[in-house]
């Protein structure tokens, strides 16, 4: 069969249109997607434009106060505690002043008490998160409804780009199976564990917010961690930020972290 240029172009055009059209038709006929009317959020769920935290470590006096928050979080989320330090998985942890604020210049005459204080660190739920930008599978994403930086364990392929990107070290990789060697001390049957080869981090207790409860660390901290809506000028966090002098970790990087650390009391600030 011979064909001139005109006939060939005609045939090619028609078959392209037919092919694309039938693909669309097949896709629209395929079933399986839930109807929007079938799913809804829990009416008890806490809502905000952007969740954030205010941390006042002056309310934490002993090591036990810190440990209480850390253990409460790690227990309800089945976070493993491995013997090998290289395999450590952490959602919330404590560190020294100079590790928390490495960008603040060393100052010999500043408040010694503050300099010797430990700080509670966890995911900042940044407004402009570096981890989300680098994730190749959108396993980590910023929730549009309330600005939480979420981690979809089903999608995580364990590339660890997010760990490299996060300036706050908030992410941990499961180098070993978290279920092995009784690494999970207290098993919470209501919450999943993770598997080997995924990255995990603090999720601001999204499973508790969904049923109207505060994050666990805020609940256990005797008021040292306050959780609330950063976009609502009447919220408790906004009042604290307005009243007291607060700083954030590495603000110069432009990720807009959502944890404000109270430095000094209201009367002196």
């Amino acid at each position: 069969m011979s064909m001139n240029r005109r006939q060939f172009l005609k045939l090619a055009t028609v078959s392209t249109i037919l092919g694309a059209g039938s693909a669309t038709a097949i896709n629209s006929l395929s079933r399986g997607n839930l109807e929007a009317s079938q799913v809804s959020p829990d009416p008890k769920a806490l809502k905000a434009k952007r969740w954030g935290f205010v941390v006042d470590v002056s309310k934490l006096t002993t090591d036990e106060d810190y440990q209480k928050c850390i253990d409460a979080c790690h227990n309800i989320h089945n976070v493993p505690s491995h013997k090998e330090p290289r395999h450590e998985v952490k959602w919330i942890w404590k560190d020294t002043y100079e590790h928390t604020f490495p960008n603040v210049a060393e100052d010999k005459i500043m408040n010694r008490e503050l300099q010797e204080k430990n700080f509670l660190l966890f995911c900042n739920h940044c407004a402009n998160p570096a981890c989300v930008r680098v994730c190749p599978t959108q396993a980590t994403f910023k929730r549009k409804s309330d600005g939480l930086v979420m981690q979809d364990m089903h999608r995580c392929i364990g590339c660890r780009f997010c760990m490299a990107a996060c300036p706050f070290g908030a992410r941990s990789f499961n180098y070993v199976d978290p279920r092995k060697d009784n690494a999970i001390k207290v098993e919470n049957k209501e919450f999943p564990t993770r598997m080997i080869g995924v990255v995990e981090k603090c999720t601001a207790c999204y499973e508790r917010l969904a049923i109207g409860e505060q994050p666990k660390c805020a609940e256990e901290s005797n008021g040292a961690i306050v959780f609330g809506d950063l976009e609502d000028p009447n919220s408790e966090v906004r009042k604290l930020i307005a009243e007291k002098y607060t700083i954030r970790r590495k603000p110069e990087l432009g990720t807009q972290p959502g944890i404000y650390y109270v430095i000094g009391g209201g009367e002196h600030a």
């Binding site: 399986g32 839930l34 959020p41």
Partner: peptide, 22 residues
């Protein structure tokens, strides 16, 4: 269809925050 239902449930909870199914 349970596999498809579970997939949809997963996406609704993890990604859209919808936790009630009618």
């Amino acid at each position: 269809e349970h596999m498809q239902l579970l997939n949809d449930w997963r996406d609704e909870v993890v990604r859209n925050g919808n936790r009630i199914y009618t």
